[in-house]
Design a protein around this nucleic acid. Structure first.
Length: 413
DNA sequence: TCTGGGGTCCTAGGACCC
DNA sequence: TCTGGGGTCCTAGGACCC
């Protein structure tokens, strides 16, 4: 590092992970402040977006229900979970709803059993995206090296930002937190650490509206006591396997020999487990990335049978193809691997795909090739979900040249 | 009355080429 | 008469994340 010239101390790598607090619920509460403190469940893709307004128009026919009135809708006119029928899951739930045992990713049917009086709101994706863009642009104005990790999360590289080293990054974290609150009215939590791995864990330490700063020397005290499941990349399967070996905490993981981990978890994953247990992670904060695939899928209201529900299935299939094609075209991509995904009633997933000799974003072409894929799966079973995917993407205008045509064997003989 | 939708990355076997 | 490996692409499934 070029520190000799000025004599200043070397810059420490300072990476922040920022997580918006209860993002989906908070976005709803911005629009409906009268719901504060009430049990609210957000989610359920199947609820028609205008259900609520249909009810309101019925109740107050003399009034026009437009955007301005949203914050004054009487609480009794919000739809309740008990009236809901469908196969959705909860995206999130407010604290008042959590007290009844309702949590994110829970089926709404189960949630309705636990807390039937809870208010159900569909996710307002347009509003979520708007606030998401707003908080990210606020961050970029302060610290430009930002990695998008979805709608409510980012990594930020503080290392070279003026003031990014003060108090280990706490000063800059506070500034970002305050700026986001001013711009959106929402709170967030940050973790600042030497790398993404630890920053991600640290952002969970003080929620909501918290800041945690972790240094390399804090590994043993702050990271090792945590359960392995807290590692971003250790999911339910790996965790169960680790537990089976008597490894529950990251500290216990760190005590295992690398060779032992490699033997039991594979060359790549085992070595990675060893690295992360010792807090090592050199991944850079990535400011851009290209999509690899685009897909659309839908779970039916009831399981469908190809023999019995041919027309319905065909219409849904066509619509999925059109949606993927539209997504590709809107974003300026073409792809050459086209595939389908099915989930049977027993939750088994099967996929089939095929790579064609040219790039496309045409709905009819996607439908044709996806249709051929569909012929390669068992269509006598009950189907719960159908999806269409296009992969091997290229940007329109940057399509790689077609490969040399294969020699025609028939002409050689 | 179980279990959404949109992604990424990895593995592993087979085809095919050199 | 028989045997290599390395490399890439393709496909299917699975773990994991938000």
């Amino acid at each position: 590092m070029l520190t000799g010239v000025t004599g200043s101390p070397p810059l420490l790598r300072r990476i922040a992970h920022l997580d918006m607090d209860a993002f989906f619920a908070s976005v709803e509460l911005l629009r409906y402040p009268q719901l504060k403190g009430l049990p609210v469940v957000i989610g359920g893709g199947r609820r028609r977006e205008d259900d609520m307004f249909a009810r309101l128009r019925e109740a107050y026919p003399e009034r026009e229900w437009t955007g301005d009135d949203l914050s004054r809708i009487p609480v009794e006119f919000f739809p309740r979970l008990e009236t809901y029928v469908g196969r959705g899951v909860a995206t999130t739930a407010t604290y008042a709803a959590r007290q009844f045992g309702v949590g994110s990713a829970m089926g709404l049917m189960k949630a309705a059993k636990l807390c039937p009086q809870a208010i159900l709101l569909p996710v307002d994706f347009d509003e979520v995206r708007r606030i998401s863009r707003l908080f990210k642009s606020t961050i970029r104005e302060i610290a430009p090296v930002m990695e998008d990790r979805g709608v409510d999360e980012v990594y930020i590289d503080f290392t070279d930002v003026p003031g990014g080293q003060r108090e280990g990054g706490r000063v800059l974290a506070r500034l970002i937190q305050k700026s986001i609150f001013q711009a959106t009215g929402l709170t967030c939590s940050l973790g600042v650490a030497p790398n993404k791995l630890i920053a991600k864990m640290a952002s969970e330490f003080k929620k909501p509206n918290g800041i945690s700063v972790v240094h390399t020397e804090d590994l043993e005290a702050l990271i090792w006591p945590l359960p392995c499941r807290k590692i971003n990349g250790v999911g339910p399967k790996a965790d169960a396997k680790l537990q089976g070996h008597g490894i529950h905490t990251i500290g216990e993981l760190a005590q295992r020999e690398r060779a032992w981990l490699v033997e039991h978890f594979g060359k790549s994953y085992g070595a990675w487990l060893h690295e992360v247990a010792w807090g090592r992670d050199e991944r850079p904060v990535q400011t851009e990335s290209e999509p690899v695939s685009m897909s659309r899928e839908t779970t039916f209201d009831r399981d469908l049978l190809a023999s019995r529900d041919r027309t319905e299935l065909g219409a849904i299939f066509t619509r999925l193809c059109e949606q993927v094609a539209d997504d590709l075209q809107r974003k300026g991509y073409v792809g050459k691997t086209i595939g389908v995904k099915l989930r049977y009633d027993n939750f088994q997933i099967v996929t089939r795909d095929s790579t064609i000799d040219h790039f496309t974003s045409d709905a009819a072409s996607i439908r044709r090739h996806a249709g051929l894929c569909l012929k390669r799966v068992d269509l006598t079973r009950r189907i719960r979900l159908l999806g269409v995917r296009v992969g091997s993407l290229a940007k329109v205008g940057e399509v790689p040249p077609a490969p040399e045509p294969a020699p025609d064997l028939a002409q050689l003989f």
